[in-house]
Amino acid sequence: MSAGFTESVLQFGEQGRLFGILTTPTTVNPARPVVLIPNTGFEHRVGPNRLHVQTARALAAAGFCVVRYDVSGLGDSDAPPGQAASSLADSRLLLDVLDRRQLGTGYMVIGLCSGSHDGHQLCRADERVVGLFSIDGYAYRNAKYHQLYWASRLSHPLRSLKNVAGRVLPQYRLLEPRGADAEMIQWPTAVEVAADYQRFVQRRVSMAFVFTGDVHDTYLYADQHYDVFPMLRGAAQLRFLSHIDHTLTRRAAREEMIRYIREWLLKVTP
C-alpha cells in the first residue's frame, strides 16, 4: 500500500448490499471528523476522472479518515429489495457503521453535483454531520444574475444564440437522473435551502461552496450564493472558479480543488 494511508473495504447495510472504500491515515486522530464522499451523478465511488480516489488519498495523507461510497443502485451498491432507493438512508447507515468504529468525531461531506445534494440532505437530517464542502450544488438565480445575464446577452447577441444551442447539446446536465436503479433527485426551493442553512449556521456546521464555470445557467458572479443566502456571509467560504469545468476534466483543476479542500479541512478541524 502507498505511504501515508491504507485502504480497506466497507460493506454495510442488509446483507452487505452497500459498498465503500475506507482510506485510513497511518495515524488516526480521533478528534478529527471522518470525511465522506458520496457518488457524483451515476459514476461509481472513483469519481469523475478519479477525483474521489485522489481526494481520499490526499486527505488521508493529511491525517483524515475518508470513506468514498456508492449509494443504492450505483457502482457496487444494490438497491434495497422491494423498496425505493434512498441515498439519505444509505448515508445514515454508513454513519452508524462508522460510529461503531470510532474513527473520529463527527462527519464532513464533500460532494460534487448530486453528491452535494446528498451531503446537504444528510446534514439536514443528521446532526452528526459537522461540515459540508459543496461543488456545484444548489444554486439559485437572483436579480443581479438576471441583470448580468441580460446585459451579457444584449451586448453579445451571437452568444445568446450559442447559449440556446448549448442547451440542446447533451454534454452536460446537472443533477441528471443517476442510473436505472438509483433514485431521482428533486431540487429543493431556495426558501427551503435558506431555512436549512439557517439551521446549519446555528449548529455551527463548517461550510464551503464552490461553483464552476459550467453552471452559468444558474450562477454568474462570485458572491451570488452570499447574496441569495445572506446568512452564509461570515459563516461559510465561497469560491467561484469560472476557469474550472463541472467534472474537473483538467488535471490542474483537480489538483487545485484537492488543495483547496485540504486547506479548508485543516483550517476548520482540530
Binding site: S152, H156, R159, K162, N163, A165, G166, R167, L169, Q171, Y172, G213, D214, H216, S242, H243, D245, T249, R250, R251, A252
Partner: peptide
C-alpha cells in the same frame, strides 16, 4: 468544444496539459 461553446468568453477551458 461543446463545453466552450456554452461557456462565457472569459471562462473558456484551458488547454489540456
Amino acid at each position: 468544444r461543446a463545453k466552450n461553446w456554452r461557456r462565457n468568453r472569459h471562462s473558456q477551458l484551458p488547454p489540456s496539459d
